[in-house]
Amino acid sequence: MSRTLPLFPLNLVAFPFQNLNLHIFEPRYKELIADCIENNSTFAIPSYVKNKVEYGTEMEIREVSKKYDDGRFDIKTRGIRIIKVLKMDNPFKDKKYAVGSIEEISNKNNPDIIMKEEIFEAVQEMYDLVEVDERKLSMDFQIYDIAHQIGLSKDAEYELIQINEERQRQRFVLDHLKVLLPKLRDLQRSKELIKMNGHFRKYNPPQEF
């Protein structure tokens, strides 16, 4: 069953349960957010990654951090669920922004315990290799909780939000980590060698593979 939502396309992938801070400054989106606040309603962020608007995430506004005199907003939002845009009217009737007919994508939360442990250990090793001390992973994590932290490209993140079963998401992420970790280990060894030779100055870990 479809319903309609205001659409706020962005060149990023938002995941369910993700907290996302937004600065709203374009006139059409100032109107969109003002309407959502007034009606206590949600909106969708379709990911404009593949030069089209299709899959994205329904978002709720958790807090208006600041409203400016010119109508701009600083807001805190949180992802709710994955959606698929079936049809878009841009602009919608007398509004400046687009509204889409959307379908909610069902989510089967069926984690595999063995894969979950493998991913947990792999992510902990990744944190150690890139020397990220402040991030600690709890064993009750879901894939969406770590999706932005493991060096996925934007295209890979977009592929991930189209997977509606946790076990398949686990396999997707585990396959990625099995490629990523050997590269990080090699970089770590190179870093240690450079340190030993006295030429090490600054090290920035890779962001995407």
Rank of each mutant, 00 (worst) to 15 (best):
A98G: 03
L181A: 00
L22W: 10
V123T: 04
G198D: 02
K136W: 11
R171Q: 11
D128A: 14
P182H: 01
N40A: 13
N51M: 11
A122L: 11
I82G: 05
R72H: 05
N164W: 07
L180P: 03
K191Y: 06
F200E: 05
Y29L: 05
D35V: 08
P6D: 07
T4F: 15
E38G: 11
T4D: 15
A122W: 03
R169N: 04
V64P: 07
L10C: 13
Y158L: 06
F17T: 14
E157M: 14
R185T: 00
G198C: 06
K52C: 15
L7F: 15
I161C: 00
D175A: 03
Q170N: 00
G71D: 00
F8P: 13
K50E: 15
F172Y: 09
V132G: 05
Q124M: 14
D35I: 08
G79M: 00
M88E: 09
I45S: 01
L181S: 00
L12E: 02
Y29P: 11
Q170A: 00
I163N: 01
A147G: 07
H176R: 00
P206S: 07
N11H: 15
E31M: 15
N39Q: 14
P9W: 13
I114Y: 13
N90S: 12
Y48A: 15
K96V: 06
K136A: 12
I113L: 14
A122H: 06
L174Y: 07
K76G: 06
E157C: 13
L32D: 06
N107M: 15
K84L: 01
N110I: 08
R169H: 06
I194Y: 03
F25Y: 12
Q149K: 09
E159A: 13
D175E: 10
D70Q: 01
L86R: 07
K116M: 10
V132S: 11
Q188H: 12
A147E: 01
R28M: 07
T42F: 14
E54A: 12
V13W: 03
S101G: 04
E134M: 13
E121Q: 14
A44V: 02
T57I: 08
V13Q: 07
L184N: 05
L7S: 14
S106A: 15
K66C: 07
A34M: 03
K96I: 08
E104V: 14
E104G: 03
Q188A: 12
N110K: 08
R62T: 09
L86I: 11
L86D: 09
I83F: 08
S65M: 09
S47H: 03
R189G: 07
I105S: 04
I83E: 05
S65C: 08
Y55I: 02
N11T: 15
K191N: 07
N164M: 09
S106W: 10
N21V: 13
G100W: 04
V130T: 10
M126Q: 11
I105Q: 05
E157G: 09
F43V: 01
S2D: 15
M59I: 01
D35W: 07
I146D: 01
I105Y: 10
Q168H: 06
E159V: 09
R81S: 14
D175Y: 03
